[in-house]
Design a protein around this nucleic acid. Structure first.
Lengths: 95, 95
DNA sequence: TCCACTATGCTTAGTGA
DNA sequence: ATCACTAAGCATAGTGG
């Protein structure tokens, strides 16, 4: 344990170039983000969805991650979103 | 400033009954959640979407909030999600 | 590789302006 | 009614096993 190097310093938000570090950060922060979404959903009584596209590395293809695990809820949210977009589009076309 | 009551205690994740407190928490945590999603997206180079349905109070109807503000990106994510669900459904039906 | 640890920095509940 | 402040609690980068 090296006491002098325990600090982290202020984190700069910038794409992490090193594959291994990025994948590790991805796993950690994905967990944190979903936890936050879940807490938010419960505390405020709000339907919440998180959709992630995760190109993990050069070898593995893009991977999809969604929350909540109940896909039906996400589908519902997606459909509502698409309906809403369609309505907005129609309204614009009518101008 | 009452020093003795400055503490918060451990937060219990449970629906906030008081309308005003819930709305305040909603606004604060929505901001936090979106910031996290944005950081995550940049750090890991990952497409990320957050969709919230916000029934703010008895008076106001359900309100939709999405991130990123570029709806086209969210639409793209939604469509990919729906396509994926359709593929999964088809695969199940073929069994 | 993946999980555990922990000091640091970040988020936010409670509060006051 | 917002908005700002701040300490407590939380998330997590770096590290070790």
């Amino acid at each position: 344990m090296r006491i002098l190097e325990m600090g982290r310093g202020k984190l700069i938000i910038k794409f992490i170039m090193k594959d291994k570090v990025r994948i590790l950060t991805y796993e950690k922060r994905k967990k944190g983000l979903i936890k936050k979404a879940q807490e938010f959903s419960i505390l405020c009584g709000v339907e919440t969805c998180v959709i992630l596209y995760a190109p993990k590395s050069e070898e593995t293809p893009a991977e999809l991650e969604i929350w909540p695990p109940d896909h039906a809820k996400v589908m519902h949210a997606c459909h509502r979103q698409i309906q809403r977009e369609a309505i907005v589009r129609t309204q614009k076309e009518m101008l």
